[in-house]
Write a protein that binds this DNA or RNA. Structure first.
Lengths: 348, 348
DNA sequence: GCCTATCTTGAAACCGGTTTCAACGCAAGT
DNA sequence: ACTTGCGTTGAAACCGGTTTCAAGATAGGC
């Protein structure tokens, strides 16, 4: 272990050296505050001599405009509120990353707050953002009732990501989970599987419900009888995957394929299968959901439904900026595509 | 595909309904602005009747104080700047998550900016944060020269995460990568391995360099000759892991164990090994770094050096708040612990 | 040469809070 | 009765910008 651990702060006072203001620049350049402001914003034409004098002064004094004052005076904070959900799913992490990336260079900075996928926390967090006078709101997932959102949208430019809201077509970007669930299941059926275990995500989570719907639809369409024994109600964790498989095997349910709630669950399932001497894909086929980075390097590489998480975040961020500026934009539904790799085999 | 895709925004103007201000409350409660402010902040004792009148007014008018105005007047923005690095490593994602979590309920909100691990971008991003008058700075990793940081620290409460800076003991939380590299290697040596391949991360990345140092130290200590053929210079991606193993095998380098730059690299290595018919751990032992969530559910579960990423983020965030308030705090070095699972076997 | 349109410019109001300062009311001390 | 002192209170200054407004300068039209 190195030396300097468990050190206590020395409580040195933080000197509040006051920053240079627009007035300092004005004095230095022998003009008025107004003129300095005009130079900064290119709002009105300014005499070339004074302009250069101001720019000169800004450079020598190392001027950095106070965004807070600017926000107050201008009525725009150049800040966006992002409500995230720390449910630990890499999908949501990637969304957030995409948002940061999509905002780079736009002049807007994101403030992140956590909703914890609980209505009360989310409401509180949104209030915080409103208090901070964000110019727009980006809601990632979450549980806020649609009536409240409709109200919110009246006051503030709002875009919702990863939720399907009726009447929000152009302010809502999400993925068709029913269709995705259908395609994943269909893929397994096409490969001859009939006994397909479904490892559901969190009970109340709309993603989980919708994918289940797609699963059921594919079964019906193929004339396969639905068997509730094949359904395991869990969450989105790896542990949930191992518990599911253990439980399935313990109660003697016969299955030849597994459709997991997401890739993490698929990893857990894969591990549990191998513990029971079942090989993937030789004995049991496996399909995940998300296509997180690790999935391409699992052994075997995981066949999964690819969700374009980063792209969605980026698109949403850019759209929000347009929305604030009242510029036209397109918020395209991004497709979730079957990423075929090596965890599914034809049933022999 | 569902109906409403590719819809264009209707460009409906966003109504700027002005929020209720402190003056509205004052009028409604028949007191002055000052008194309202005092009630809000509990700064001076206020007559009980007036206090309740004010609170009443706030409730009926649905008052939400303007944080921007407050920041300008009070000189504190209650905002923290967080510089992240989008290098795609889950370790850094987890740090950011930890920061958000550690700030919840503190009254401070984080503004995230991306440094992309490039000096110019980082400098620019930090300027943005200063312009926004953040009360403190949290730098996650990055490449800013230490002289600039020392300067920065004079103006602003600053804490650096995941970097080892001399003279920053109490404002810097990181992990001893040399020690960690040493322990990981030692673990393999203890199990009889001598031909240990090292899959290095990005060349310039200090984490990679330090772990390499630890690796070399362990080898020397055990009297094992260093062989540069066993070193593969890559990055922190899964692809890097497969390329490393492929390259090692292609050039006929004999090895019985692999120490990967991080878990993602380990996954890639694991996959490449299995492609070559080599089993983990029977034929080749494997150690990763990070202990990301997936690693416990890999097949076999990955032995890895656990970095407490979320905890570090949380600790750093809490420490920063203390630092701003000039309260004493401890910024403990968190240990990186060997997480023994099933990817290492005794050399037969 | 005179009037008007346009370009520049500074003073002052404003954004919505916090904080200083002086004044007032009232109870206690002598 | 007269200070003294404390607890309350509102007016006004202030934070650092933006924006309105009116005035002065300049140029163009006749």
């Amino acid at each position: 272990m190195p030396d300097a651990c468990h050190l206590t702060s020395e409580s040195e006072p933080m000197q509040q050296r006051s920053e240079t203001t627009i007035q300092d620049i004005a004095d230095h350049a022998h003009v008025s505050k107004s003129t300095v402001s005009r130079v900064m914003n290119n709002s009105t034409s300014v005499n070339e001599d004074k302009r250069t004098a101001v720019l000169e002064a800004m450079k020598t004094l190392g001027f950095e405009p106070n965004l807070v004052a600017r926000s107050l005076a201008g009525g725009r904070s150049m800040t966006l509120g992002v409500l995230t959900q720390n449910i630990g799913s890499p999908f949501y992490d990637s969304l957030a990353q995409g948002v940061i990336r999509g905002l780079a260079g736009s002049g807007y900075s994101p403030i992140f707050v956590d909703g914890q996928w609980q209505q009360s926390t989310e409401a509180e967090s949104i209030r915080t953002l409103i208090g901070r006078r964000v110019d727009g709101l980006l809601l990632i997932g979450g549980d806020v009732p649609v009536e409240q959102l409709n109200e919110l949208r009246q006051r503030l430019a709002t875009i919702v990501v990863a939720r399907d809201l009726v009447g929000w077509q152009n302010q809502c970007i999400h993925v068709d989970n029913v269709q995705a669930g259908y395609e994943a299941t269909k893929h397994l059926i096409d490969f001859g599987h009939q006994r397909i275990a479904l490892l559901r995500g969190i009970k109340e989570h709309p993603d989980a419900t919708q994918r289940f719907e797609g699963y059921a639809k594919a079964l019906t369409e193929a004339g396969i009888e639905f068997d509730s024994d094949l359904i395991f109600q869990g969450d989105f964790s790896g542990q949930s995957g191992v518990m599911a498989v253990n439980s399935l095997i313990a109660r003697g349910t016969h299955f030849t394929a597994v459709f997991a709630a997401n890739d993490m669950v698929a990893f857990g399932a894969r591990l549990a299968l191998s513990r029971h001497g079942l090989r993937v894909p030789d004995d049991v086929s496996l399909v995940g959901f998300d296509d997180q980075a690790e999935s391409a390097f699992a052994t075997p590489p995981l066949t999964t439904m690819r969700q374009p998480a980063v792209e969605m975040g980026t698109a949403a961020a850019k759209a929000l900026v347009k929305l604030i500026h009242n510029e036209p934009y397109e918020l395209a539904c991004l497709p979730v595509e079957l990423q075929i790799r090596e965890s599914v085999a034809r049933l022999r």
